[in-house]
Simulated assay, not measured.
Amino acid sequence: MSCGEPHETDCSEVLAEVWLLLDHECDEARDAQLRRHLDECGPCLARYGLEEKVKTLLTRSCRGEHAPATLHQRLREQIRATVLEQAEVTVERGPAGTVVEVNQTRVESWKS
Rank of each mutant, 00 (worst) to 15 (best):
M1F: 10
M1T: 11
M1Q: 14
C3T: 06
C3W: 01
E5L: 13
P6Y: 03
H7I: 05
H7W: 01
E8G: 11
E8N: 07
D10V: 04
E13H: 06
L15S: 11
L15D: 05
A16K: 13
A16W: 02
E17S: 12
V18R: 09
W19G: 06
L21C: 09
L21M: 11
H24W: 01
E25F: 03
C26L: 11
D27C: 06
D27R: 07
E28Q: 03
E28I: 00
A29D: 00
A29Q: 02
A29M: 02
A29K: 11
D31C: 05
A32H: 02
L34Y: 04
R35C: 05
R35F: 10
L38R: 07
P43T: 02
P43I: 01
C44K: 04
L45M: 13
A46V: 02
R47T: 03
R47Y: 04
Y48V: 11
Y48C: 10
G49K: 02
L50Q: 15
L50R: 13
E51S: 09
E51C: 10
E52A: 15
E52T: 10
E52H: 07
E52I: 02
E52M: 07
K53M: 15
K53S: 06
K53D: 12
K53H: 04
K53W: 05
K53T: 05
L57Q: 02
L58S: 11
L58C: 03
T59C: 13
R60M: 11
R60N: 15
R60K: 06
C62T: 04
R63D: 03
H66E: 05
P68I: 00
T70C: 09
L71Y: 14
H72I: 03
H72A: 15
Q73Y: 07
Q73L: 08
R74C: 03
L75G: 03
E77R: 15
Q78F: 01
R80W: 00
A81I: 07
A81M: 10
V83C: 14
L84W: 04
L84H: 08
L84C: 14
E85W: 03
Q86G: 13
A87P: 06
A87W: 00
E88I: 12
V89Y: 00
V89G: 08
T90I: 02
V91C: 15
V91A: 10
E92R: 02
G94R: 06
P95Q: 08
P95T: 06
G97F: 06
V99P: 11
V99F: 01
V100G: 09
E101F: 09
V102Y: 04
V102S: 13
V102I: 15
N103P: 00
N103Q: 12
N103V: 06
R106K: 07
R106P: 01
R106C: 05
V107F: 09
W110Y: 05
W110R: 06
S112F: 01
S112W: 01
